[in-house]
């Protein structure tokens, strides 16, 4: 049972089982025999050229899986999509990571990949928004942008020739994440979407569903238009600006007190995601909001959201939702 550690009473156990069974019946047949474990051979028609993609290899003329997962086929290409493995980045993915180290001209980020990702200083927009080369001064000031343990959102840019992963922050909306929670869930639960940044206006919250299974729930931050900023703020000598930044940040701290309500919403959403993740349901904005509604409607306290009762409720709700949507399709 997906490694759940909940103390369910008898009825809850039954209800949960029923819900999960109905879910299974809904999804049965799609990928029943397509899952493989390591060294399973993958049936292919060897006659016409097979393209062996990720997670496969050629062993004595047989195509063999090198990872556990689900076989996927695109025309003649065969590859294995892993389920509970580490995150496998693709160019263009939106990810959330945590800074491990400030290195020369780069930050090293933990992103749940098999190696650390690299965010070059040159792949970041400078705070002043001016188009220029990065100087030694910029390099010395790198800690004023991100420090160790900062949480950062970025985009996967490219794989270098040596296989290391490069990130980039295309615009101002990427960058340091503050005043919120970072959740780590299995990456397969996050499906690639057109949008991974979500602004929930109703609650004043930013939600970033990183493809690597790192999810950020935090207070909404208005993205500054760097263009306007550039037009209006004349650049000052570096030392001076540094000083003013420090004094500003003190003021800011007082101003930027996050209201209790927002903090409660952050927790609520975070818990909703936690519940979904323990149940192994894929996480999309719609589902999260639904669970959020469910919890408020039933008057469930934030801390109770991780309890057994709510977990069962969510499972039932999901079963109901999916059966509805499949019925609609038919």
């Amino acid at each position: 049972m997906r490694g759940m550690e909940l103390s369910l009473n008898h009825t809850q156990k039954l209800r949960l089982q029923r819900a999960l069974e109905s879910l299974e019946s809904l999804s049965s047949g799609t990928n029943s025999n397509a899952s493989v474990t390591v060294a399973d051979s993958i049936p292919v028609n060897q006659e016409d050229g097979v393209l062996k993609g990720h997670g496969t290899t050629d062993l004595d003329g047989e195509v063999v899986a090198t990872v556990c997962g689900v076989i996927e086929r695109v025309n003649k290409l065969v590859y294995v999509r892993t389920l509970r493995a580490r995150y496998k980045p693709e160019v263009g993915d939106i990810i959330v990571g945590r800074v491990l180290e400030v290195a020369p001209k780069r930050w090293r980020l933990e992103i749940n990949f098999s190696q650390d990702a690299v965010l070059m200083l040159s792949s970041m927009n400078l705070p002043d928004g001016i188009q220029r080369r990065r100087t030694a001064v910029d390099e010395l000031n790198m800690r004023s942008i991100f420090e160790e343990n900062d949480v950062v959102s970025a985009e996967v840019r490219d794989f270098m020739r040596d296989g290391s992963l490069q990130l980039q922050a295309r615009s101002q909306k990427y960058g340091k994440l503050e005043r919120g929670q970072l959740l780590t869930i299995s990456p397969y639960l996050v499906k690639r979407r057109k949008q991974h940044f979500h602004h929930l206006e109703k609650y004043g919250i930013d939600l970033i569903l990183g493809c690597n299974g790192f999810i950020w729930v935090g207070e909404h931050v208005e993205v500054k238009d760097d263009m306007v900023e550039d037009e209006h703020t004349p650049t000052k000598p570096d030392a001076k600006s540094n000083k003013s930044q420090i004094s500003q940040s003190l003021e800011e701290q007082e101003q930027t007190y996050t209201p209790l309500e927002t903090r409660q919403y952050i927790c609520r959403i975070a818990n909703a995601i936690r519940v979904l993740s323990t149940l192994g349901f894929s996480i999309t904005l719609d589902v999260i909001l639904e669970i959020l509604d469910l919890s408020t409607k039933n008057g469930i306290d934030i801390h109770e959201m991780l309890g057994a009762e709510f977990c069962v409720l969510v499972a039932e709700k999901e079963a109901e939702r999916r059966s509805l949507s499949t019925r609609k399709k038919r």
Partner: peptide
């Protein structure tokens, strides 16, 4: 399209 660092440095 690839988001080369040039796009942040070119004036």
């Amino acid at each position: 399209y690839k988001g080369s660092e040039l796009t942040r440095e070119v004036a």
